[in-house]
Nucleic acid binder design. Structure first.
Lengths: 224, 224
DNA sequence: CCCGAACTGGCAACAACGTGCCACTCGCGC
DNA sequence: GCGCGAGTGGCACGTTGTTGCCAGTTCGGG
């Protein structure tokens, strides 16, 4: 339908042009909308505009048919209460939102395995966006973006645990002892502290990550 | 130096053409060689040929200068002892090898943030490879590949723990209860089984992952 | 020097977990 | 039915983890 514009690679300058030339792409998603960004700032204007007025088909989170909206952000998106609320709202609308522990330097979107949009670097003038339609390149990008999404944590598991206060050297050694599967007694001996103090450290760690059992602490602490 | 060939996107057909037309690229890596693949089969011929005869600069793992060789594979690369030995050898040569829990459908390489190579789909005839030089696209791909690498586990942590025997539905629900931080009593009630049986399940799970404490089990189980 | 805050380590009571033992049930083959 | 093996649940008891309390130590003001 419409004009052709099927060049394999098109570079757009500025968000305005992105919305104008590629806005239909967003709304055209039918099977999968895969999106990765460091925080909620990027895409906000363009995507929201394109999705306005019910142009987006309804999400069906648990279903195999319908549009799967998968988004992956970094911890930067969890910074303030405002962002958290927006994230929760996105998740509540049926999107599968996850938080990656790794940084995402550039934003990327892949739609229906058919087209990818990569954001250029920020700074100095209008931001650029590259729309990719070459099948193999799109599929390669999707493969990577999907792997990042897959490896990330569900946002529901992250919303409460926003406070990861950077553990000091001693906390890390306690963590090592716990991860090694030692009993408290053996761990305290190895670390050269008393049993009571070691248990105090463990209790402090568990409080820091908001865990109510050691198993839960182990799960939450994985990835420091 | 040499001929130009600076088209932003070039598609090569077959591994032979990859080695002939892009082999120099592999050997030209100076700062970073970032590589993602499902297993050790891909690239093996091409890359090894290109790296033969000392064409590759020496790796300096811990240093900030020199070439950083980062590789990420999936668990498929850990299948048999032979693969494991090759992986260990790669790691021993100074490469930073990691194992991603997520699948990597397509192989990708990014060299010095300047050029990306994406493999096409397998099957029917010669495999294709797309060499990408457009700066923004390369950087976008690198961003995703690096995120996948960053989120993956060091291969040293995976070599021993190869036996992850696929947990059934009941095991997953037990896991959920453990991760929720419930006490055994509450968890058994929620799952509708007796305290004794629940503890049997937990013990079985811990034996399955080779953990000697619940904390350790939590760490090892993270990522199902 | 004295005080208080912060930390440590010992003790004890308690909660939670780990496991052996046994009785019971269910399904299967004979 | 009978025997058998696998799985369950109850019980008991030992081990491990959790916590409050208190005494001792260290450090830095006042």
């Amino acid at each position: 339908m419409g004009h052709r514009e099927s060049a394999d690679f098109v570079t757009l300058r500025g968000e305005e042009e992105l919305v104008r030339r590629a806005g239909d792409l967003f709304a055209s998603a039918r099977e999968e909308f895969l999106c990765g960004a460091a925080d909620l700032v990027t895409w906000s204007g363009g995507v929201n505009a394109a999705f306005a007025d019910g142009k987006r088909p309804p999400l069906r989170p648990g279903r195999h048919d319908g549009l799967a909206m998968r988004k992956v952000y970094t911890r930067r998106a969890l910074g303030d209460p405002h962002s958290e609320r927006r994230l929760a709202a996105i998740a509540a609308s049926g999107a599968q939102v996850r938080i990656s522990a790794a940084p995402l330097a550039r934003e990327a979107i892949v739609i229906d395995r058919r087209v990818a949009i990569l954001a250029g670097s920020e700074g100095r003038g209008a931001r650029t966006y590259t729309v990719v339609r070459a099948a193999d390149v799109v599929e390669g990008i999707r493969s990577l973006l999907y792997a990042t999404w897959e490896a990330a944590d569900d946002v529901a598991d992250c919303l409460g645990a926003a406070a990861l206060p950077e553990l000091d050297e001693e906390a890390r050694s306690v963590l090592g002892a716990l991860s090694a599967g030692l009993t408290d007694e053996a761990a305290a001996r190895r670390l050269g502290m008393s049993l009571r103090t070691y248990r105090r450290r463990v209790a402090g760690l568990m409080a820091a990550v908001g865990a109510s059992s050691r198993f839960q602490a182990g799960v939450r602490v994985r990835g420091r």
